[in-house]
Write a protein that binds this DNA or RNA. Structure first.
Length: 372
DNA sequence: AAGACGGGGCG
DNA sequence: CGCCCAGTCTT
C-alpha cells in the first residue's frame, strides 16, 4: 500500500481536518461539558450502534446514573434494565464492572495501554477515551477511520472484518495523529466518516481532503474498503401466547445461557415442549440478530396445554404491573402490546355472540397475581 | 483467526 | 429485504 505521500503531507492533512471539524462538528450531548464519565458512557453505547439510536439512551442514562459512583452503586439488574433495547448487553455489564473498578481506584490511569486492561475496553475505546479526556496521543481506528484511510490511499485489499482492517491501518492512523489536539483529531476522523466519507454515498464535494484522496482520483471511492460479505442465515422461531387469569406466560433466559442472561421473552414452543399448531399464528414478526434473519410466529395456546402441575424454573406469569418492571429481549415488550390488542379485538367480536371467554386485558390487569 | 453478540434505521 | 453502524470478548 502506498501511503508515503500522505504521511509526507501529514501536517497539511491534520490542518485541513481540524479546520473542517472546528467548522462542522455536530452538537452532540457528550461533547458539551465533557467529562470522563460522559465520554466512557458514550463510547460504550456507540460501539456498533449509530449516533441517532444512542441519543435518547444517553440522555436517560445520565438522568438515572449521573456518575461512576451512581452506576457502581446500582444493581446489575437495574443497569441492564436501563440498557434494554440497545443490544449487545455485555456492554452494559462491562460498563457496570468498569464503574465499580474506577470508583475504587485511587488514581485513574490516563494512557491507552493501561485502559486496555479494563473490562469492555478494547483498542478503539482505550484510544478514544484517553485521547479525548487525557489528550493521550493514541489514534483511534474504527469503521469510519478504516473507510477514510482505505480511500485516501486507494487500498483495494479485501478484509475479513473491520478488526482486521483496523490492524492494517493502525500505523497510518498513528502517523497522521495531531499531537496538539489528539482527542479532537480522532473525533474529527470519525465525524468525517459518519457525515461525509460515508459508505454508500460519500459526499466528496464536502470533504476537506478530497484533493489528496486516491480513491476519488480513480473514481473508485464507493468500492473501497472491500469486505468479504457474510451471508445471512434464516431462522424461524415458533412462540406461544398463553394467557391465564394470572397473566401472560413469560420465559426468563437462564443465567447459564451464553447470551441475554436474565432477560425475558415470550416462550418458544421448543422450551415448552409443544408442537407447532396447524392453525395460523396470531402475528408473524421479523427481526435480525447479527447474521441471523429470524421470523417469529406467535401462536395462541390455551394455558391447560402448557403445564400439568407447577410452573417450572425460568417461567413466570406476568401481569401489566410486573411486565413494566421486567427487561425484555429485543422487541418482545412491544410485541406483547400488539398481541394484547389483537386478542382483545378478537374477543370483542366473539363476545357479541353471547359466549363469554375470559378477557385478555382484564386478565393482564389483574392486580396481586404476580410471578413466583 | 474465527464466531458470537442486538437492534434499529434506511433506501 | 439487504446493508450499515464510534468493537469486544470468547473459543
Amino acid at each position: 500500500m502506498n501511503d508515503s505521500s500522505l504521511v509526507a503531507n501529514a501536517a497539511g492533512f491534520r490542518a485541513q481536518l481540524i479546520d473542517w471539524y472546528d467548522q462542522s462538528a455536530r452538537d452532540l450531548p457528550w461533547r458539551s461539558q465533557p467529562s470522563l464519565y460522559k465520554t466512557v458512557v458514550s463510547e460504550f453505547m456507540l460501539q456498533q450502534t449509530q449516533v441517532k439510536t444512542v441519543l435518547p439512551y444517553f440522555h436517560n442514562w445520565l438522568q438515572v446514573f449521573p456518575s461512576f459512583e451512581a452506576l457502581a452503586s446500582a444493581s446489575e439488574e437495574a443497569v441492564v434494565k436501563q440498557w434494554e433495547g440497545l443490544g449487545y448487553y455485555s456492554r452494559a455489564r462491562n460498563l457496570h464492572k468498569l464503574a465499580r473498578i474506577i470508583s475504587d481506584l485511587d488514581s485513574i490511569p490516563t494512557d491507552a495501554k493501561s485502559w486496555l486492561a479494563l473490562p469492555g475496553i478494547g483498542p478503539y475505546a482505550a484510544a478514544a477515551v484517553c485521547s479525548i479526556v487525557f489528550s493521550d496521543p493514541s489514534a483511534v481506528v474504527d469503521g469510519n477511520v478504516v473507510r477514510i484511510l482505505s480511500r485516501l490511499v486507494a487500498d483495494r485489499s479485501e478484509y475479513k472484518t473491520t478488526t482486521d482492517a483496523a490492524k492494517t491501518h493502525q500505523s497510518l492512523a498513528t502517523a497522521l495523529l495531531n499531537h496538539a489536539r489528539p482527542g479532537d483529531h480522532n473525533q474529527a476522523m470519525m465525524e468525517l466518516g459518519a457525515t461525509v466519507c460515508q459508505n454508500q454515498k460519500p459526499q466528496c464535494l464536502l470533504c476537506p481532503v478530497q484533493s489528496i484522496c486516491q480513491a476519488k482520483a480513480q473514481g473508485i471511492e464507493t468500492k473501497i474498503p472491500r469486505f468479504n460479505k457474510t451471508k445471512a442465515v434464516k431462522q424461524t422461531v415458533e412462540r406461544a401466547w398463553i394467557v391465564s387469569p394470572k397473566g401472560v406466560l413469560l420465559y426468563r433466559i437462564p443465567q447459564t445461557a451464553s447470551r441475554m442472561k436474565g432477560l425475558h421473552e415470550m416462550p418458544s414452543l421448543e422450551v415448552l415442549n409443544l408442537k407447532t399448531p396447524k392453525t395460523s399464528p396470531l402475528i408473524v414478526r421479523k427481526r435480525s440478530i447479527t447474521k441471523y434473519r429470524i421470523t417469529e410466529r406467535f401462536h395462541q395456546i390455551s394455558p391447560e396445554k402448557a403445564f400439568n402441575g407447577d410452573l417450572p424454573d425460568h417461567f413466570l406469569w406476568a401481569n401489566t404491573d410486573s411486565i413494566a418492571s421486567l427487561t425484555f429481549t429485543g422487541p418482545h415488550r412491544k410485541w406483547i402490546t400488539e398481541l394484547i390488542d389483537i386478542v382483545s379485538e378478537k374477543q370483542q367480536g366473539s363476545n357479541t355472540h353471547a359466549n363469554s371467554a375470559p378477557d385478555t386485558k382484564n386478565s393482564l390487569n389483574f392486580r396481586g397475581s404476580s410471578n413466583p
